[in-house]
Simulated assay, not measured.
Amino acid sequence: MKLSLVDLATIKPGETATEALTQSLETARLADQLGYHRIWFAEHHMAPAQASHHPELLIAAAGTQTKRIRLGSGAVLINHYSPLKVAEMFMQLDAMFPGRIDLGLGRASSGPVIDLALRRDRNARPTDDHAPQVTETIAWLHNAFPEGHPFADKPLIPTVPTIPDIWLLGSSISSAHLAAKLGIGYTFAGFINPQAAAAALRTYRANFVASPYGTGQPRAMLGINASVGDSAEEGQRLALSVKGYYNRLQQGNYTAFVPTIAEADGELGDAERSEPTAISGSRWPRFVAGSAEQVRQTCEQMAAESEADEIIVQSMIADPVDRNRSYQRLARVFDLPSDTT
């Protein structure tokens, strides 16, 4: 099973976006050395807790500081952009770092104000055109518009011999069906909708149709949030950061920062603090935590139940030192092929 990371450039309380972005590049270098398969960068807008607003910028920066790890977006929010712009951007990234670029496509609402601000035509009625946007992006990358289409036979950058690897990110059954129909890779956000994860990934695999736009085989990836300690107790303590952040969001504080462990410990009630961090019966946790061995067992059970062949790990531990130590423990327990040169 492959193991990867998705980085949000979480801003530690009292620090700046500059420091968080610097730390993201340090995490990319570390992930490269530890043997993680890929690192993706998130897209968030007007989110004080995260500094990763435009993943393509971090991809370009990380590409110059890493050697072998794949680099991508988790995800570009295609509902806000022109497919031509997205496709051309990632073709250029692939020209810069051949064979290492992933284009992860997703969609999200950042709220009515931000959604409006991101739109060029603010007088048009919003429409759900996610599937056509994804399809058009793929067509641009593969020069696959049908004959007679106004965009046919207009290759983006003909001298680039490779094409970014295309993934669809989602948290519902509908996204699983779309990825399967298009024959591209599929990633399910298990930390958003854990109870639907296994069914969605199995649905994707069962309905997969081979196409020229992927490898010809289904590739199912499960996204989880994980906090890994030297002991079960330390893992649970580290998980307080993300539990505290989600608690702040649930209370309507959408401008909240991710709290430190001490802050979260003072804010959380007993129910939030004791929320399960491992599979209980048939219920999956929103946040996986514990010792390295406990987290490994949970990941392997999730992968088996969902038929995922890759786990991509997100961590929202506020302190970047603790966060990277968590990644190091996970890499060791999975015996990833580290590069110490």
Rank of each mutant, 00 (worst) to 15 (best):
P132Q: 11
L222F: 10
Y213S: 09
L156M: 03
W167N: 06
T127V: 14
H130W: 12
Q217A: 12
L182T: 14
S211M: 01
A198H: 10
L156W: 04
P132M: 10
M221P: 09
I163L: 10
S175W: 00
P146L: 09
W167Y: 15
P150Q: 07
I173H: 15
V228C: 06
G223H: 04
A139R: 13
A144D: 07
I157T: 06
I173E: 13
S172E: 12
D115Y: 04
N123D: 14
L222E: 14
P112I: 01
A200C: 07
D153H: 11
P132D: 01
M221S: 11
L156P: 02
I138E: 08
L168H: 13
H177Q: 12
S172W: 02
L182I: 07
H142Q: 12
L182K: 11
L116E: 14
N225P: 07
H149K: 03
D128N: 15
P158Q: 00
A206P: 05
R120C: 00
H149G: 03
R205F: 02
R125Y: 05
F145G: 08
I163G: 03
N225G: 04
A226I: 00
F188D: 08
R205H: 03
G216Q: 04
W167D: 08
I138V: 15
T215S: 15
P158C: 03
T203H: 10
L168T: 04
T159M: 10
S175L: 01
N207K: 13
A189I: 06
A189W: 03
R125T: 11
T127Y: 10
I163N: 08
R202M: 09
N207D: 15
D129P: 06
R205Q: 15
D115I: 02
N123P: 01
N123T: 12
F188Q: 02
A131W: 05
D121Q: 09
A152D: 10
N123M: 09
Q195T: 05
A180E: 11
G214N: 06
P146Y: 02
L116R: 15
P194M: 07
T203D: 12
Y186D: 12
G185Q: 11
V160W: 09
Y186C: 04
P155M: 06
D165V: 06
T159L: 09
A210W: 08
I173F: 13
G170H: 11
I157L: 15
A139G: 05
H177K: 14
R202P: 07
H177I: 04
Q195N: 03
L178Y: 08
S172A: 13
A199L: 12
A117T: 10
R122S: 07
